[in-house]
């Protein structure tokens, strides 16, 4: 319990800064969450599927973060989201989707920094994005350009590049969900 309190004290401020637009805090939060998610999922599904589900859940945390209420604890929010993604994953694969409702501590019991094997669901889906969106995403992802730099390179305004990036991420999230569904 004490350990979970410490997790809460560490993660909640990160989440609040992330919601305020601090991308460094956002990066750190997703990094820490990813390690907990990996360990949580690894105890519940086959090793070959873990990393894809970690990525899918991180994308969901990212896109759904405005549903977090800043006056409430963060760890139950993250746990409920992770559990939902796990149940959804099992349902799509037509497996028993009984996942006991545990304390949020179940997610934060252990962490694992070692990335597992990838099916690369995301890479496959990336190929289905419209060219303009895909090239923008690849500029940002592979070449590490900032959104502004990528926008200049592609000759669009920074605002529309931001919108395009956000739309692409939402589309990927949808496509991941619909794939096996």
């Amino acid at each position: 319990m004490l350990q979970q309190d410490q997790t809460e004290e560490r993660l909640r401020p990160l989440m609040i800064r992330s919601l305020a637009g601090d991308s460094g805090a956002h990066r750190e939060l997703l990094g820490v969450l990813g390690r907990y998610l990996r360990s949580y999922f690894a105890r519940r599904i086959g090793a070959a599927e873990v990393e894809d589900l970690v990525q899918e859940t991180l994308l969901a945390v990212h896109l759904k973060r405005d549903s977090y209420d800043r006056s409430l604890p963060f760890t139950p929010w993250a746990y409920a989201l992770a559990r939902y993604k796990l149940i959804d994953h099992l349902r799509r694969r037509k497996r028993s989707r009984h996942v006991p409702l545990e304390d949020a501590g179940a997610l934060f019991a252990a962490d694992d920094a070692e990335q597992g094997a990838l099916h690369t669901d995301l890479d496959r889906l990336l190929q289905r994005l419209p060219d303009r969106q895909r090239s923008l995403l690849e500029d940002v992802k592979l070449q590490g350009l900032s959104v502004e730099e990528a926008a200049r390179k592609r000759g669009v305004t920074a605002v529309s590049a931001r919108v395009m990036l956000h739309r692409s991420l939402k589309w990927l999230n949808q496509a991941l969900r619909d794939e096996n569904g």
Binding site: L30, G34, L58, Q115
Partner: peptide
């Protein structure tokens, strides 16, 4: 895509809520 790359990508899509 490595998970670290994904996180890097998502960190570029942060705006204040």
């Amino acid at each position: 895509m490595r998970t670290a790359d994904l996180i890097e990508l998502l960190a570029r899509d942060v705006s204040a809520t």
